[in-house]
């Protein structure tokens, strides 16, 4: 009888262990776990563009991890992403003029929020807001500035369903996200070529929540990271008039083709080409 009991107990333990492992994996290693919080205090920051920042991304001061991103929501009134940072209570003395910026670890790495200390004597309060922020740098914008291609709009076209015309949509396809300040607000309904004007007409379907987009906002085709998928980014303008259903967005920026950029770079940077070319022919 005692031997019978011992294996029964062992079998019970085995079953409990198995289910415990399953429950742990299902709740702690999947998207369900994102609600987890530790002892921390929260600070908010508004970013014009969060890039690829995700919830639970690290928050760093001087490169040292001090907390994590708790939530990211779009604030339609400010046309900015509202990012809530949960910071370890030990590091609660952050001057209220500190700058929050979104950085990338390496070229393809993940993005994180870096806080650079300010000089103010006042600390930012629990639940307060860091007023000074720097948005995530888009690779296309940086490359665009670098090549003098015009930061915002290099192409005039003309369109809640909104229309936008691009001279080149790159690999953009129907279903791709439309983002403002890095937060998805809609999707691309259709991409087709205009046989008369010989450009691409893109139909954007945008969430009714976000009907406060100024009519001088710019639409641009961006790529997530260096090798990611393409999406349409809307950069808000300053006009008091808002875009309405069926309007066409006038300011657009076409997709940057990596080949074009590299081609320009090779033509302009002739020394490197001359060095490389003979070596290639030999």
């Amino acid at each position: 009888m005692s031997q019978r009991n011992s294996y029964a107990v062992g079998t019970g333990l085995f079953i409990v262990l198995g289910f415990a492992a399953l429950a742990y994996l299902a709740t702690q290693t999947t998207s369900i776990a994102n609600t987890h919080q530790g002892a921390s205090y929260t600070v908010q920051a508004h970013f014009a563009n969060i890039g690829q920042l995700k919830e639970r991304a690290p928050v760093k001061i001087a490169g040292v991890r001090v907390g994590q991103v708790r939530s990211i929501v779009l604030d339609p009134e400010k046309e900015a992403a509202e990012v809530t940072l949960a910071i370890d209570e030990r590091y609660s003395h952050i001057p209220d003029d500190s700058v929050a910026a979104i950085f990338t670890s390496g070229l393809l790495g993940d993005q994180y929020v870096g806080i650079q200390y300010g000089n103010s004597n006042k600390d930012v309060a629990e639940g307060g807001t860091l007023a000074r922020t720097k948005p995530a740098q888009q690779l296309e914008e940086m490359l665009g500035k670098f090549f003098g291609a015009g930061g915002v709009a290099d192409n005039l076209g003309g369109s809640y369903t909104l229309k936008a015309r691009f001279s080149n949509v790159g690999a953009l396809s129907a279903g791709a996200p439309v983002k403002m300040a890095g937060v998805p607000i809609g999707s691309v309904a259709a991409v087709h070529a205009d046989p008369v004007r010989l450009d691409a007409e893109v139909i954007l379907v945008i969430d009714k929540k976000y009907d406060q987009i100024p009519d001088d906002s710019a639409a641009a085709v961006f790529t997530s990271g260096l090798i990611g998928t393409q999406y349409v980014a809307i950069q808000p303008g300053g006009s008091p008039e808002m875009l309405k259903n069926g309007d066409e967005m006038v300011l657009t920026q076409s997709a940057m083709q990596l080949e074009d950029l590299i081609g320009k770079f090779l033509v302009n940077g002739s020394p490197s080409e001359q060095k490389d070319a003979p070596a290639g022919k030999q």
């Binding site: 290693t29 999947t30 998207s31 995700k54 639970r56």
Partner: peptide
């Protein structure tokens, strides 16, 4: 944090675990 946040951001309960 990056290790876990990337994991929890991508892994889906139904498609992966179940």
């Amino acid at each position: 944090g990056t290790f876990w946040s990337n994991m929890t951001a991508t892994v889906d309960v139904w498609k992966d675990v179940v």
